[in-house]
Design a protein around this nucleic acid. Structure first.
Lengths: 366, 366
DNA sequence: CTGAAAGCGCTTACAG
DNA sequence: CTGAAAGCGCTTACAG
């Protein structure tokens, strides 16, 4: 039982292309009928195969264009075992909108990843998930995606389990973020240690001696912990001693930054600078100091990390360490496409950039 | 030529499920062989068909789970002519990162749309495009998506042409945003007129008489223009006359808000309040006033629109009109899923919510 | 340079 | 409740 179609030019095989053609949902067979060639030739022509004579190829492509024909991706994918799609899994831990301002970085990553993927001929399937969700493996196993990119996470220890599961299922994936020992899969991320080093080094170069750190040294947050190790390295290289009393713990939020700075003040330990391992912490800490009559940067210099949009808008504008989303996205996509094509892929860290504004005292307000 | 497989339990058809099974990339045939049923029965069982005896169904599902089997979406899609995927086209006009802070709203929409789509059993394919890109039609025609959701746009007039093209190609789509006369397709958006009415009404209720508007009345920005008409309605309802000298033009940026406020000051026309049709404009205008020694909200009340994260952080915190992303996303997804399922769908506007902070003078700083 | 044919892995009438 | 069979729309050896 052949599907009946309304082909206006069914009888005049080689009708001039000027003729308006109408087919409901054209297939390569329809194109073939109209062009008077086999369906196989249409398939070849549409994929720009040099096997097809140029003239024929162009005629076929013109007909396809006129009919608004596009290759059925399900059929092509079934044949080739490819989807030309990358699944982007974003683990958004912002519990109920609290820290969403942070996530603008995710948006720029999404943007950059989508564009990079398009350049390689891939679509991007997005899924915002909680860490406890469990569909990670399904994307590749169901042939919806040829590989995954993982972005963001909450607790690294929990995250790590997911990575192991993906690896066991032979899923291809690239991770944005930390490079931890024996971590499964490949990653592309920011050299957080280097960023911490730059931030701290900058404060030292401004003559600051008692530099506090607010952040985390936990293996549950390896990225933040790496910023801390960079801090320690910078101090050592400058011949300064690390003072444990100046190392405070805070998760990534203004509230916790605020609280940690208050603790710091109440400890009575003298300090003339703070390296906060995230902008949110930095902004909270800055508020705490200002609320207590301490002037930034005159009395205390502050440097953050992330360069979220808010950083430029607080007063004084925050000096911070910036990661290049475009570069990161390009690296992730290049990596996953490489894995899909069976090329060797390695993990990479890119150097972040210090953005100097007012909060450190290197630049005066004009 | 049958594909050779390594099935450990090939011989023992009804082997106990405790036995570890290994197949490289299992298909429904493999499951069928192991379960000792036909491939058709496996297909039915995996789709929870009541046609299959409960016991058989559960046995099959257990085997599938153990083998880490997932239905090949390409094959299923080819058969059913569905992809269970929604394409989300985000038109991001932020020319080179300038206004990206605005786009956090897009991120919350993306988040909410993805979650809503998952609830309906749909994946989300994301594409960030420029308005001049031209792949809109391809998504549905290539069976990569069953329908589109369009988010954001620059110039409405140009956007409108894309909508007409989509409509001509019989593409299913839902639009986030404006409802304009004779617009093709269906939309779900914010009642901007109502929002403008609320904002202006609030200023009036605070005793303000000379309320300026900074924004747009152009048909190229129907959403902004609707906020303007709400402003006019509120004035009328309060028996106030619209003063053309108090209506200034600005596109959505701090710079233009700043410039417009300066123009307003230099015009010499007295005013005691500003309704800025976007937060970015409001923040720019606020800076301009403050730079000229005018106190907000003592001398001039300001209300914005959007409630971007920055709004709560500027000083004084900005009173503004908020759109509910979650609600909007749900409406868009419900709409497009309805269209896919052939149900009747209509366009809807949801009422925004006034968020009162310090900049209008209704709340004192504590 | 082109065509006939097989087959990718499903879903679903049809028949029992 | 289950199976045999057709067919979705492609891509790609194979043969000419």
């Amino acid at each position: 039982m052949t599907r009946s179609r309304t082909l206006m030019s069914e009888t005049t095989e080689n009708s001039s292309p000027e003729r308006k053609l109408r087919v409901e949902n054209p297939t390569s067979r329809d194109i073939a009928d109209i062009a008077g060639v086999s369906q196989a030739t249409v398939s070849r022509a549409l994929r720009d195969s040099p096997l097809v004579r140029k003239e024929t190829r162009e005629r076929i492509q013109a007909i396809a264009r006129e009919l608004n024909y596009f290759v059925n991706r399900n059929a092509a994918g079934l044949r080739t075992h490819q989807s030309n799609t990358i699944a982007l899994l974003m683990f958004d831990d912002a519990s109920e909108g609290e820290d969403t301002s942070q996530n603008l970085f995710l948006l720029s990553m999404l943007d950059a990843i989508t564009r990079a993927a398009a350049r390689y001929g891939y679509d991007v399937l997005v899924s915002l998930q909680q860490l406890h969700d469990d569909w990670h493996i399904e994307y590749q196993a169901s042939h919806r995606a040829d590989g995954l990119i993982l972005l963001g996470y909450g607790d690294y220890v929990e995250y790590r389990e997911k990575l192991e599961a993906l690896s066991r299922a032979n899923t291809r994936f690239m991770i944005w973020g930390p490079v931890v020992k024996d971590q499964p899969g490949h990653s592309f991320g920011c050299d957080n240690d280097n960023g911490g080093y730059q931030a701290t080094g900058h404060l030292i170069s401004l003559g600051r001696k008692n530099i506090a750190l607010i952040g985390s040294t936990s293996r549950r947050s390896p990225e933040l912990a790496a910023r801390y190790t960079g801090y320690v390295r910078a101090l050592e290289d400058a011949g300064l001693e690390e003072n444990p009393k100046l190392v405070l713990t805070a998760q990534n939020s203004e509230q916790q930054g605020y609280a940690a700075a208050i603790d710091l003040l109440e400890s009575g330990e003298p300090f003339d600078a703070i390296f906060a391992v995230t902008d949110l912490i930095a902004i909270g800490a800055m508020r705490a100091l200002q609320d207590n009559g301490i002037s930034v940067p005159e009395d205390v210099s502050i440097v953050g990390f992330d360069d979220m949009p808010l950083a430029a808008h607080v007063s004084p504008a925050l000096t911070t360490v910036q990661q290049n989303a475009r570069f990161g996205a390009e690296g992730l996509v290049r990596g996953i496409v490489g894995m899909i094509e069976g090329k060797p892929v390695s993990s990479t860290l890119m150097a972040p950039k210090l953005v100097v504004r007012q909060s450190c005292g290197a630049i005066r307000n004009d």
